[in-house]
């Protein structure tokens, strides 16, 4: 059981490497991989697909910066953040804005597992924790 899960995981990982172009996920390649899987279904197809899905989701999240904000954010600001992150991670990162009034004011950027935060809510939380 454990070993078959491991095999599926490994296979999914190989499929993910096939789906990347220049370190970012390409929809075309993913389509190709899925088409292949449909034709040649592996022994534990569901496990492989689940693992593949998870891994692709992580990869996608790495290339996407979700900018949560309270109050207006200009396109230029988003672009500058995207540019800075692209430079930092050495891969193309696109920024998408999402309204989040709990922040009171300021921004919180999610890129993959990393979070960059510069918001009033975070500062207040830090104050509460430190006193």
């Amino acid at each position: 059981m454990a070993s078959s899960a491991k095999v599926a995981q490994q296979f999914a990982r190989q499929l993910v490497t096939l789906s990347l172009v220049d370190g970012s996920v390409s929809a075309e390649r993913v389509g190709g991989v899925l088409a292949y899987l449909e034709k040649h279904a592996p022994a534990n197809a569901i496990a492989v697909l689940k693992a593949y899905h998870r891994l692709i989701a992580t990869e996608v999240a790495k290339g996407e910066a979700v900018v949560e904000h309270a109050g207006p954010v200009s396109e230029a600001e988003l672009a500058s953040i995207a540019a800075a992150l692209s430079k930092h991670y050495r891969r193309t990162v696109t920024a998408t804005a999402r309204e989040r009034p709990e922040l009171i004011a300021g921004l919180r950027v999610h890129v993959g597992d990393d979070i960059y935060e510069s918001s009033v809510a975070a500062q207040l939380a830090a104050l509460e924790a430190s006193v």
């Binding site: 597992d113 990393d114 979070i115 935060e117 500062q123 430190s130 006193v131």
Partner: peptide
């Protein structure tokens, strides 16, 4: 404490709890 607060951006690495049992958590991400 208020004086110490800076408006600098903070970087955090995060994950999410996938399962938690018997005092042990399995975490995605991190």
């Amino acid at each position: 404490q208020i004086a110490k607060l800076s408006s600098k951006a903070v970087k955090k690495n995060t994950g999410n709890i996938r399962t938690i049992a018997d005092g042990v958590a399995k975490i995605d991400g991190l």
